[in-house]
């Protein structure tokens, strides 16, 4: 009987803790938005964070995009030629990249490259009392440190996703047209005929914007909320990557079910 009560007590404590943390996260998110003035007016602050989140992620995004495209080209051709429709390779590569793989894989890479770096930086600033020192100098750390990193991530993510998709399509073209010998004209025209700008490309960009907001917010929150010790910071980094990955995949399902419902 007491074991049962203990179990319910444990369950209740877990639920209360989760809800409390969610509320805290929401308040933090609202505070970041309200204190974004400096990050947007003194844009140099945000520019530096675009450099950290965007430019430094370029290599991993471009290389991964290329390889994903190459694999899509190989596997796609292998399957499509069984049905005698190898010309549809362009369509298959482009649609899978633009709708799903581009935003999702770029988002996962962004979370592990830029998101973890953002958490580490803010966490270390907290652990070494830099945030407290800033607060004592009458400079709001949320406005000066958190908001520029958030916006840097939000701006970088859709750009990275677009680069990832373009690189992937290039990779698919390289395998399909250059190495295997699918007709160049058929590759591009079948792609153009079935990829719709608003429906496919814009929805993909919209997804990447949503993922950018989610990952950046999780990264700055975990850093700001981390325990101010070396161990606490490393735990926060792990949480950023895990939470971001799960959030991206869950959001992707929700967004996809809204965007592509009832349309073939």
């Amino acid at each position: 009987m007491t074991r049962l009560l203990d179990f319910f007590r444990f369950l209740g404590a877990q639920v209360v803790e989760r809800i409390w943390r969610l509320g805290y996260f929401t308040r933090f998110a609202v505070a970041v938005l309200f204190k974004s003035g400096a990050a947007l007016v003194r844009f140099q602050l945000t520019l530096r964070e675009i450099w950290f989140a965007g430019v430094l992620s370029l290599i991993i995004i471009l290389v991964s995009g290329l390889f994903v495209g190459l694999v899509l080209g190989l596997q796609g051709y292998e399957i499509l030629q069984r049905f005698g429709s190898a010309e549809a390779l362009g369509t298959m590569v482009a649609l899978s990249l633009l709708r799903e793989l581009g935003p999702v894989v770029a988002g996962l890479l962004f979370a592990s490259r830029a998101g973890s770096a953002i958490t580490a930086e803010i966490g270390l600033m907290k652990a070494t009392e830099q945030l407290k020192a800033m607060d004592m100098m009458a400079v709001d750390p949320v406005a000066r440190v958190v908001a520029p990193r958030f916006w840097g991530g939000v701006i970088s993510m859709p750009l990275l996703a677009a680069l990832f998709s373009s690189m992937g399509i290039f990779g698919g073209w390289l395998i399909g047209v250059v190495f295997i010998g699918v007709d160049d004209g058929a590759f591009w025209s079948s792609m153009q005929a079935s990829v719709d700008f608003r429906h496919d490309i814009w929805n993909g960009i919209f997804k990447s914007i949503v993922f950018g907001v989610a990952v950046s917010l999780i990264a700055v929150f975990e850093g700001y909320d981390s325990e101010p010790t070396a161990e606490g910071v490393s735990r926060a980094i792990t949480r950023t990557v895990v939470t971001s990955a799960l959030t991206i995949l869950a959001l992707d399902f929700v967004l996809t079910s809204f965007m592509f419902r009832g349309i073939s």
């Binding site: 600033m125 070494t128 009392e129 830099q130 020192a133 800033m134 100098m137």
Partner: peptide, 14 residues
């Protein structure tokens, strides 16, 4: 706080 300065334990330099 603008009229106040504080030195932290290990400096807390940025």
């Amino acid at each position: 706080r603008r009229r106040m300065g504080m030195l932290f334990q290990f400096g807390a330099l940025f």
